[in-house]
Amino acid sequence: MFLIGVDEMVHEWALAESIADYIERELSKKGKKNIAKIVIKLGILQSIDKEILDFALKEIIKSRDYRVGEIVYEDEEVILKCRRCGYEWRINPSQLDEAIREAIHFVPEAVYSYFKCPRCGSRDFEIVRGRGVSIKEIILGDNNE
């Protein structure tokens, strides 16, 4: 059995709560009570612990007045692009120093503190993709399910 103690309910809990609130609001707008499927994109820059996020999200949903069928997570690789010289590059957060990875985990914009364009040295770059958590798709279920 997969168990997680409350002490380990870290930052992912806060993110799970925002997803649960978002689902609730979308359902309320549509007058529905269930969603069949939700696809959540996880930009790997934020190094989200998928198991903890999934556990937290399911726990929070249990306390809500709606039901969710399938929860799908899709990893999205990180692409950064320099605004000055146009160079595009990828980073793999799992290879970063732990303190830097942790900082970026909480606030991905901390990436501007630790990275520069490898070609021209500029810190004026954009996160093209792979920043953090976002909801890609929600498929509504039948109201009477």
Partner: peptide
């Protein structure tokens, strides 16, 4: 607490996200 003493230039969209 995340950026320490490093320079952290940000454009509008990054500021909003942060």
């Amino acid at each position: 607490i995340f950026t320490r003493e490093n320079p952290t230039p940000m454009r509008g969209e990054a500021v909003v996200n942060a």
